[in-house]
Nucleic acid binder design. Sequence first.
DNA 1: CTTTAAGCGAGACGGTACGTCATGTCTTACG
DNA 2: CGTAAGACATGACGTACCGTCTCGCTTAAAG
Lengths: 204, 204, 204, 204
Amino acid sequence: MTKTADDITKRTSIGAQRNPASEEAILTAAAEILSEGGLSAFSIEAVARRAKAGKPTIYRWWPSKAALLLDIYHRQKGETFYPDTGSTRADLVAFLETLLGFWKTSGGEVFRSIIAEAQSDPAALEALRDYAVTRCRASGLILERGVARGEIGEALDIPLVMELFSSFCWQRLLTGRLDPSQDQITHLVDAVLTGFAAKDRAAQ
Amino acid sequence: MTKTADDITKRTSIGAQRNPASEEAILTAAAEILSEGGLSAFSIEAVARRAKAGKPTIYRWWPSKAALLLDIYHRQKGETFYPDTGSTRADLVAFLETLLGFWKTSGGEVFRSIIAEAQSDPAALEALRDYAVTRCRASGLILERGVARGEIGEALDIPLVMELFSSFCWQRLLTGRLDPSQDQITHLVDAVLTGFAAKDRAAQ
Amino acid sequence: MTKTADDITKRTSIGAQRNPASEEAILTAAAEILSEGGLSAFSIEAVARRAKAGKPTIYRWWPSKAALLLDIYHRQKGETFYPDTGSTRADLVAFLETLLGFWKTSGGEVFRSIIAEAQSDPAALEALRDYAVTRCRASGLILERGVARGEIGEALDIPLVMELFSSFCWQRLLTGRLDPSQDQITHLVDAVLTGFAAKDRAAQ
Amino acid sequence: MTKTADDITKRTSIGAQRNPASEEAILTAAAEILSEGGLSAFSIEAVARRAKAGKPTIYRWWPSKAALLLDIYHRQKGETFYPDTGSTRADLVAFLETLLGFWKTSGGEVFRSIIAEAQSDPAALEALRDYAVTRCRASGLILERGVARGEIGEALDIPLVMELFSSFCWQRLLTGRLDPSQDQITHLVDAVLTGFAAKDRAAQ
DNA sequence: CTTTAAGCGAGACGGTACGTCATGTCTTACG
DNA sequence: CGTAAGACATGACGTACCGTCTCGCTTAAAG
């Protein structure tokens, strides 16, 4: 994303249809404001000012602050791939590292803003809930592959366990601790994967 | 807490010292507003109005909205006990159920407001981080007892694992899904405790 | 001015331009407050409340309380005419009576508020000074006609003398004594016009 | 006025009576604030802060801001003398120059604050009115001497004419134009003293 | 080939909340 | 009882955003 919100010449209506240049400018401006000043600097006014857009234009297409935030997030995230190394352990470690890494570099500010916004906006809450559930199901792919390989028992509630892992990332994001060591991540994955109940008991 | 913010007659200064009646009235009013209208209804103005207190009185003692929220939370939470049933599994299940239950009935609205607030207030973020770390360490008691009993290996990073469990609760709180079934909780505890890697592999 | 600030139904924006209905409502409300409660009741908040206008709308168009007061005064005063009876003496008497009369019935409260405000607001002070100087020059017309008629010598510093007469009115306004008798006014005009130095000396 | 409000060591109650040191400190502090920041900087809070006095101490002895201002003014003004040069004209010129000069150097800020305050405080208005009337009567001494000398006819309403002169000074004070030239003052005095009606008419 | 209808920027509108300041009253602790 | 100190309820200050509105325009599609 090399171009910024400033490189407009003069946008105006292109007829009775949504102007992609305005949409572009608004989303870019919004993302910039968020990354520069955080959620507290993020207001519809500020976005409109920066994007040189009218406020009604924003309200026309995004009913709330949260909707705008969600749009920014999806545009930044792009496609999500779940690496397939052949090992559930490695896949899980990669999953956690990728997510935390993405949030650390760019998307974190946006996503934590979405979560914050959802706490006072019921519609945003619902969107967030749907998103979270969907993501847990999608990322379950990692464990499903493990089941197929016979690494994991079939009785496991896969989305529930994936929720556990993603929750850990959420909590780290929300408390500003996105930098767990490589060791911590592998330790965590190992602990959950093999269970931390003493092995002699498991052998009983 | 049977009495509400309304049962004051006429508060005034009691000299050059903090008036406990005002503090009481403010915290009560704040808690009521939060539980009735959620975070979006929660403003210093509204608290002052309801508590029949002056805004400066609030700002004098609570530097920010977040500080007020934290105070409310601590007052509602009271002492935290970690049940000791003699079984790590049962202790963990009880821990999760207690936390989710507390959030479902009263404290949840407050705590999710704190998290939201922390996403735009650096000081609140720090307070939240400290609180989260402290709580994970404290709740580690459950696993420490397990280690002492020989149920759990000594190599385990206890706070990290407790973080996992509490994160799950956070995520449920933040997505408005505080009602996992009893089964889900036990399933989750079992999965993590015994590991979900297929047992024949563990036996290898 | 028969209609009051209350007879609005529902004002709103009429586009990116000043809404005359709002301006009207604000000025009317401000004038009413001033005449009912005096300067101490006059606050931007109170005006906004009564005019059912937003505070920012007031601040957008009137940078200060003083600016608002000046606007009210000009609107109340309307055009100023200096009667031409053919006699300087009669013109001066009429001038004083008209000014004192106007202040007694409606404009006095406004003008003394402007003077008060100017004592703590440099911009208002400047506006007041300009106004005072301009008015003294304009009312000099009365004496200029006298000069043209040969009633008054040409060497007289006309604005300075008019300042003297208007000052008298100011002082009466500011000390709440707007009711000098007809006799006092004529006595004053005569004293200044013919000089109060004993006539035998003038004849020397 | 060499000592300032700061040279206190530690004032406290001297028993059940007014503490002169506090009174002194309060008046000094008030005068300093007024001369440094003008009326807009003048508040009971600020005075208390600077004088290191309790607010109730101020309220106990001065019922209003205006009372405090009046006290400051009287203390600054000291005794008033009306020079007696043997010539009414010279006496009047000296009177105007002395008054304007005093206001220019020190007392002006205080007096214009009193006038401003009186526009929103009925009690202050009354005090100001009484003061103005008294002063006009007292300064009438100048003209009374002229009458005694035969310079001025006996029919003149002396206080009314003195009001005219003092009004001129008030107006200059209130519009921030305390620097009329020597010429203007003498011109004014001459104009009023000898009358500005053309002499040929007076001779008719 | 016009009309029409929607989108656009701009920005004013009535509001609400912000965080700060001053008001005048009150109580305490001390002398 | 007078004092310094300072907390209290109240309410105005001036600012920032909110979400809605109308303006004057531009342009693609419908008649």
